[in-house]
Amino acid sequence: MADQSGSAGGATGTQAPGGPGYGVQPSAGYGIPGGAPLPSGKATASMVLGIVGLVLIPIIPPIIALCLGISAQRMADRGEGGGRGMATAGMVMGIIGIAFAALGVIVATTQALSVA
């Protein structure tokens, strides 16, 4: 008795289309392409302290944000961690926070001297 493959006794040694050995290779999965490193804690802390320095306390947090941002960028450049963008954002907000704090000190000092 002949089956659809044209050989008597079944299709020995061949596989049906779509069976094992045929078809699409499994995908590599979803996620970060190339296995990019996750942001380092320094980069995250730099960005958070930069935001806190701009919104709440304009004296100490921007200085710390700037220092942590520089350190996190150097780590990212060496390949020890990711988060270069977060570190840059923390640095920029730290610089802006320091400038606002310096401007506030200058304005307060000028007003204090003009009153006396």
Rank of each mutant, 00 (worst) to 15 (best):
A2K: 07
A2Q: 09
Q4R: 07
S5P: 00
G6E: 01
G9A: 03
Q15S: 13
A16S: 11
A16T: 00
P20T: 11
P20Q: 10
G21E: 09
Y22W: 15
V24L: 12
P26Y: 03
P26I: 08
P26R: 09
S27D: 12
A28V: 10
Y30V: 15
G31K: 02
I32G: 01
P33I: 08
G35W: 04
G35A: 11
A36L: 15
L38V: 14
S40F: 03
A45K: 13
A45R: 15
M47K: 12
V48C: 14
L49C: 09
G50H: 05
I51V: 14
V52M: 13
V52N: 11
L54T: 14
V55P: 01
L56Y: 13
I57F: 15
I59A: 10
I59T: 08
L66T: 07
C67N: 02
S71F: 02
A72K: 02
Q73P: 00
R74N: 06
A76Y: 00
R78N: 12
R78M: 08
G83D: 08
G83T: 00
G83Q: 06
R84I: 04
G85K: 00
M86F: 08
T88D: 07
M91D: 03
M91F: 03
M93F: 08
M93H: 01
I96G: 13
I98L: 13
I98C: 12
A101R: 06
G104S: 07
G104P: 00
V105Q: 05
I106T: 06
V107F: 10
T110D: 06
Q111T: 04
L113T: 00
L113W: 10
L113D: 01
L113M: 07
A116N: 13
